[in-house]
Simulated assay, not measured.
Amino acid sequence: MPARIQGVLTAIVTPFDAAGAVCPDRLRRQVRRQMQFGNGIFCNGTNGEFFVLNTEEKLRVTQTCVDEAAGKVPVVAHIGENSTATTIRLGQDVAAMGVDAVSVITPSFVPLRQHELIYHYTAIADAVPVPVFLYNIPARTGNTIEPATAAALARHPNIVGIKDSAGSYESLKGFLDAVRDIPDFDVLSGPDHLAHQGFLEGCSACISGLANVCPEGVSLIWKHFRDGDVAKSKAAQDFISGLRKDLYAVCFAPAAVKKATALLGEDVGDSRYPILFSEQDLATIREVVAKYGNVPAF
């Protein structure tokens, strides 16, 4: 078995230049910024705008992250596509770049039954030569991986865990309970407000969009928990939960994250999809950045 992935992986934004093209140099800076705090990298995810990247761009993003991380922190690449065959092709190309693992979102648009999801993920895990994480985010795809399905897939030797981004404690707990007795299968928490609770209940890692905005604050949730200081971990979580509440009130969460990252002075460009920020939106995000720009000494 490969080394277990633990701690914080940042769902890293994909920087674009003024012309809207992927900018590897700016992405390298963001990878280094996360590595300063020990955060791993989760690339081509929702915060990375995978849904508006073409295949060549996804490969360029992945290669850039792998090269810059240089084995110092784990890199997990999201490869989920709407067809099984396309996901496999992308996964094989990404695996050749040296990622530590891949993550696969459920297909969207077509409503799938649980046995169809089992077929889809089994075929991918059979064909892709690096560890596979399931990725549950039903609000975006319309398809839900049920806990019993995750438990069934956990028996596959190349399926090593699940990222749950359903958004609720109940969903996260359902997966933790379903696989608690299955060795070498990890649950990763997706919602930033559940990172601390997830660690308390057995999650090995969290995938954080807000680490783009506050890499130190999110890292402290894990570091204090790892070191046995649950109170300080909870204090860091409360800080990040406040950031989440204030920032996500503006608009679609990944768009708000990228704009806040840009307003911190990080040259990540604009989101590709049609998000329009009013002057009030920008004023609110500036206030949030000012409020949470300095991490207290937890």
Rank of each mutant, 00 (worst) to 15 (best):
V61H: 02
A249N: 06
D17Y: 02
T86G: 13
V130R: 10
V130T: 10
V250C: 06
I137Y: 14
C65N: 04
R60Q: 15
P74E: 05
L134T: 10
A260C: 01
P24D: 10
D177Y: 12
R89P: 02
D238H: 13
G40K: 02
F50W: 11
Q114T: 07
D184Y: 14
A211Y: 04
V130E: 07
A236Y: 12
G190E: 10
E170Q: 10
A148Y: 10
R33D: 08
L59V: 12
G48A: 02
G217V: 05
P191E: 07
E287P: 00
G71P: 02
R60E: 14
G167V: 04
F298P: 08
I79A: 03
C214I: 09
A21I: 01
M35K: 09
I285C: 02
A125P: 03
G71S: 04
P24Q: 13
Q36V: 11
S278M: 02
N82M: 13
A235S: 09
S165H: 05
E56N: 04
S168L: 11
P2K: 07
V75R: 05
C65D: 06
F37T: 09
L276T: 06
T62A: 15
G202M: 10
L194G: 09
V289T: 03
A148P: 04
A95I: 03
Q237S: 15
V94T: 15
G161V: 03
P296S: 02
A70D: 14
V289Q: 10
N294T: 08
Y292P: 00
P147K: 12
K163D: 10
V22P: 14
F16Q: 08
I79R: 13
A152S: 12
F133M: 14
H193V: 12
A85E: 15
N44I: 00
P147V: 01
L153R: 14
R113Q: 12
Q6L: 03
N54F: 09
M35I: 11
D100T: 04
T62M: 15
K72T: 01
V295M: 03
R286Y: 00
Q280T: 07
E266R: 01
V52H: 08
R89N: 08
T84H: 04
F109C: 08
H196W: 14
L276G: 03
A205F: 00
G161Y: 00
L276I: 05
P215V: 01
R28Y: 10
G209V: 06
A125L: 02
A21E: 02
A139E: 12
K245H: 08
P15I: 12
V289N: 10
T62S: 15
D267Y: 00
D25F: 08
A178E: 05
N212I: 09
D186N: 07
A148D: 14
P215G: 03
P129V: 07
P254C: 04
Q197S: 08
S83F: 06
A3S: 13
D181N: 14
E170G: 08
N44H: 09
T62R: 14
L282C: 03
F42A: 04
N294M: 02
V104E: 01
V213G: 07
A150L: 06
V132L: 08
G190I: 06
P274W: 11
V257N: 04
G40P: 07
R180A: 13
S278C: 04
P131F: 11
A148S: 14
